[in-house]
Simulated assay, not measured.
Amino acid sequence: MKIGSEVLYLSRQHIASLSIGMSEVISLLEESFLEKAQGNVDALAKIEVHPKRDDNFINAMVCSFPKYNIAGLKWISAYPGNREKGLPYISGLIVLNDQETGVPMVIMEAGVLTAIRTGAVTGLSAKYLARKNSQSVAILGCGVQARTQLEAVLAICPELKIVKAYDINKAAITLFAQEMELRFKVKVEHAFNPQQAVEGGDIIISAGPIVTNPDPVIEGSWLKEGCFGAPIDYDSYWKKSSFETVDRIYVDDVPQFESHRQMGYFNAVPPVYGDLADLVSGKLSGRLNDSERIMAINLGLSLEDVAVAALVYNLALKQELGQLLPV
């Protein structure tokens, strides 16, 4: 590869073939947030645009990461209506530049990486915030994200035995159950409604589409004492009472979270306690006892994408994967 005259392209298939381990990504993100806590990362809040209608959005996510000598951009879209067209809900690209010269080094498909890192950041949050003896997990929304979410919490909480799954599309639950039972040897129970999924759950993950004007369903009274909640779909599934029922709320980045409040999200969410950088660095405490209800609202931060993309790039170089394109 000739730096400056060629750029490496990595497709969805290239990235999937690397078989990146979830535990490895969780550890990478833990190290990356520690770098952020030490002031060594410049991770900007998302820039968000809404083409055509409010529930479609495209984000620009930018980060400079000196530890890996790279700067990166993820340009990622989420279009809920794409499923009806046979297209992915999430799609996009990541570009990494050499930090010394500014020269682009690699362009890669962003969907696979986004699914992996979104699961991993939930896993990292669960490491500090979920009960160590958690036995059951509820997953609402059985799409691509649900699969990596389950993989991540199983990596952190191996004692999980029961998965309760709900989706408005019953066929999606069936397919999810078949795949996850075969892959992870866990029992997946079909929930007929959100309440049946959530009640009694030690870990509750909502993985539906992100919408600007949500119609949330999760009530505070459904939340078991000691549970850990992870809404990866912003505030789309959770009612005001559920946010108010939890003892503490963490996010992956406070400034980015507050910028999204200004966009109209999270109006029902009380003040947050802190973010992942404070948590992994020990500046803030994690779970104090088994009765606390705790939530992590991780919006997805650019440092997560750039750190994992750097890992993907280096693995691809070692395995001589990808296609060289002239600049």
Rank of each mutant, 00 (worst) to 15 (best):
V272R: 07
L284D: 00
L279Q: 04
H260C: 04
K283V: 11
S259N: 08
V254M: 10
R261F: 11
A268K: 04
A277W: 02
A268D: 15
H260D: 08
Y273N: 08
M263C: 04
Y265F: 15
L276G: 02
I297F: 02
M263I: 03
L288S: 11
A296P: 04
N267S: 12
F257A: 03
L288G: 07
L288N: 11
K283A: 10
G286K: 08
Y265I: 06
Q262W: 00
V272K: 06
I294K: 01
L284A: 04
D275S: 10
S285K: 14
S285N: 12
L276D: 04
V280F: 02
L284Y: 02
M295D: 01
P271E: 14
L288E: 15
I297C: 13
A296W: 01
Q256I: 00
P255G: 11
D275K: 03
D278F: 10
K283C: 02
S259W: 00
F266A: 02
Q256L: 01
A296E: 06
M263R: 14
S291H: 11
A277T: 04
A268L: 04
R287W: 11
F257M: 04
L276I: 13
F266D: 01
V269E: 03
L284P: 00
I294T: 03
F257P: 00
G274H: 04
N298K: 06
M295S: 09
M295C: 14
Q256P: 00
E258D: 14
L279T: 05
M295T: 05
G286M: 08
S291Y: 07
L288R: 13
R287E: 09
L284K: 14
E292L: 14
Q262D: 11
L288M: 12
A277I: 02
A268E: 14
L288W: 02
D275W: 07
Q256Y: 00
G274P: 03
I297W: 01
E258L: 14
S285E: 13
Q262G: 05
Q262S: 12
E258M: 12
Q262K: 14
G264S: 11
F257G: 01
M263D: 11
S281R: 08
G274I: 07
D290L: 13
N267E: 12
I294E: 02
G282M: 09
L288K: 12
R293D: 06
P271A: 12
P255H: 05
H260K: 12
V269P: 00
I297N: 05
S285A: 13
G282Q: 10
P270L: 03
K283R: 14
H260Y: 10
P271T: 12
S291K: 15
S285R: 13
S259P: 01
G274Y: 05
L284F: 07
V272S: 10
S281Y: 10
A277H: 03
Q256T: 01
N298H: 10
L279F: 12
Y273C: 09
A277R: 01
D290E: 15
M263V: 04
R293N: 14
G282V: 11
